[in-house]
Design a binder for these strands. Structure first.
Length: 536
RNA sequence: GCCCCGGUAGCUCAGCUGGAUAGAGCAACGGACUUCUAAUCCGUAGGCCACAGGUUCGAAUCCUGUCCGGGGUACCA
């Protein structure tokens, strides 16, 4: 049982001993370290019901509190009525020992025996991935890593629409380049289309007929290769690729329509087939099949999610850009109408990246070939910097990405702050070995008394809590922020405490502390898919 | 019009399941390397947390309204 749970239990016991009403008790570290390690507003929440001065309530609770010996050093009551707990240092020494005995410190077992699916990127193969796609790529990959770290069996999935209008225009664009004719209206203007046409020419010669499916097929293939390559350079791999066409071929699309029809949720107007969303509480009805006979993306999306639900995942995560905000409720509503339980589906929406170049916003468009590729960015500033840049911000913040600044600042990017801490530790350990000092399990933890040492220890102790929070919220930036704090406390420790000294006992204790810090940093960086270098 | 996200230091953003004195990086200024890596550390400066109300012992955080920016609201994806 963690120290927090023990305290909450003891506080709850006190409440009942005093005949006070029950409360949902919360403990959190106060901003000001003078108030101790954990604080509770418990007494303040009771004032109204009890009609008593909160300070007096807090003192009553304090006096009746029964705690295991050695757990808490000091309990104080401060205005306006907080209960503050100072945790004994021996607790942190135990944490240190725990980290040193377990390289996997921070790993959770929540997902043991459970299967999760994370769908992300899912850009249609109409052109290279852009900087805009990067955010989702990194976010999705980190979410998958968080789940894996918590023992989930994770399938990383990429879904794309290859049967619709977009891909048809792509094929027509390639064809136009091949025959040297005008691009279709809304055609793809990028040079890569010309390159694809040339590949086709060199492989198949000049005698392909108009309308040959090879144009679209080859384009899809080549562009997908390029997308995979860009992702690979960011250390991102998908396990499964699903596409729309499959669901036409295996009849899932027709089946979905007929099942919805059986639920009386389908009607036809103006030659189009509509989904009766209003019948099940939605704001509007939506078109599923256009009057041209071509389905809208919603229909295959429903079929696809049905397919995912039938693959028996315990957790299904969809990661979408803000432009999908309005569409997923329809999908979920349709699935519910088809008697599926959608509780295991979590939809993460991230806001867009606004690109700034030369102080001006860049409007990106794949169609007009007005974009900066993710691959180019990765090449310029490196995968670790790209990943950190995208992950250090919350997903529902709009992100301004200044390309000039990114290139400029890559030298002093905050990710190096974390990596440098790790590299420094490696160097200390190396230096220690040259002096005959290396980690011994019989170190004397009590020698770690310096404020900078204690502060670092307290930070390391928080790691599992941070992991737990990030699992619940699926927000990787919690880990990024935590690692920054940890590196900060390490750097401060480094500047105040020399590790390898003439004092062998102290050196041993500090080597232990530094090794534990290394483990936490390496684990955290791994969660973000960022490398932990031995030297820089 | 309606729905979703945001508005916090000069810039980019943390903090938002209500707590005590609102933080970091960059930019500016001033210090610290005969020592395990100065990609670091220490210090100075910088704020009506968009605005106005409300709830509360207590609001950057919750509620309502207004303003500004982004996205949706398509028989585009």
């Amino acid at each position: 049982m963690t120290i927090i749970l023990q305290l909450i239990q003891a506080l709850a016991d006190s409440l009942s001993a005093l005949g006070l009403p029950e409360r949902d008790i919360k403990l959190s570290p106060p901003n000001n370290p003078d108030f101790g390690d954990l604080s509770s507003n418990l007494a303040l929440t009771l004032t109204k019901d009890v009609q008593k001065n909160p300070i007096q309530i807090a003192n009553d609770i304090k006096d009746t509190l029964k705690l295991p010996k050695g757990l808490i050093d000091e309990i104080t009551v401060t205005p306006p009525g907080f209960l503050n707990f100072k945790i004994g240092q021996s607790y942190y020494y135990q944490t240190l020992a725990q980290i040193l005995s377990d390289q996997n410190f921070g790993r959770g077992i929540t997902g043991k025996g459970k299967k999760a699916n994370v769908e992300f990127v899912s850009a249609n193969p109409t052109g290279p991935l852009t900087v805009g796609h990067g955010r989702q790529a990194v976010l999705g990959d980190c979410v998958a890593r968080i789940l894996q770290w918590n023992s989930y069996d994770v399938t990383k999935e990429y879904y794309y629409n290859n049967a619709g209008r977009q891909m048809r225009i792509l094929g027509q664009s390639v064809e136009a380049r091949y025959f040297n004719t005008d691009l279709p209206s809304d055609g793809y203007q990028g040079d890569y289309i010309v390159d694809i046409a040339e590949v086709i020419r060199s492989e198949k010669g000049d005698n392909i007929e108009h309308g040959d499916p090879i144009f679209q097929k080859k384009a899809e293939e080549i562009i997908f290769e390029d997308i995979s390559k860009s992702l690979k350079k960011l250390n991102i791999h998908h396990d499964v690729f699903s596409n729309e066409q499959t669901f036409y071929d295996d009849g899932a699309i027709d089946q979905t329509i007929s099942d919805l029809k059986n639920k009386d949720l389908i009607y036809e107007t103006d030659g189009a087939t509509w989904f009766k969303g209003t019948a099940i509480g939605m704001d509007e009805d939506r078109v599923l099949i256009k009057s041209t006979g071509e389905p809208t993306y919603r229909l295959p999306d429903i079929a696809y999610h049905r397919n995912k639900l039938e693959r028996d995942f315990n957790l299904i995560i969809d990661i979408f850009g803000a432009d999908h905000m309005g569409t997923y409720p329809d999908i979920l509503a349709a699935l519910n109408a088809l008697d599926y339980d959608t509780e295991n589906i979590r939809v993460l929406i991230h806001q867009f990246v606004t690109l700034i170049k030369g102080g001006k916003k860049v409007k990106m468009s794949t169609r007009t070939a007005d974009f900066i590729t993710l691959e180019k960015l990765t090449k310029e500033i490196g995968p670790d910097v790209v990943r950190y840049f995208f992950i250090m911000r919350g997903m529902n913040s709009h992100l301004n990405f200044d390309l000039d600044l990114a290139a400029d600042q890559s030298e002093k990017n905050p990710v190096y702050y974390l990596q440098y801490a790790h590299a420094r530790i490696c160097n200390i350990i190396k230096h220690g070995e040259s002096k005959g000092i290396s980690y011994q399990s019989n170190y004397n933890a009590k020698l770690l008394n310096h404020p900078a040492e204690i502060r670092l220890l307290k930070k390391l102790d928080q790691f599992p809590t941070i992991i737990e929070n990030s699992l619940q919220t699926l927000e990787p930036q919690l880990i990024a922020n935590y690692l920054h704090d940890t590196a900060n406390r390490f750097h401060k420790f480094y500047s105040e405490c020399h590790v390898i000294t003439e004092d062998i006992d102290l050196s041993n204790a500090r080597i232990a502390l530094v090794s534990a810090t290394q483990t936490v940093l390496a684990n955290g960086l791994d969660l973000l898919g960022i490398s932990a270098p031995d030297k820089m």
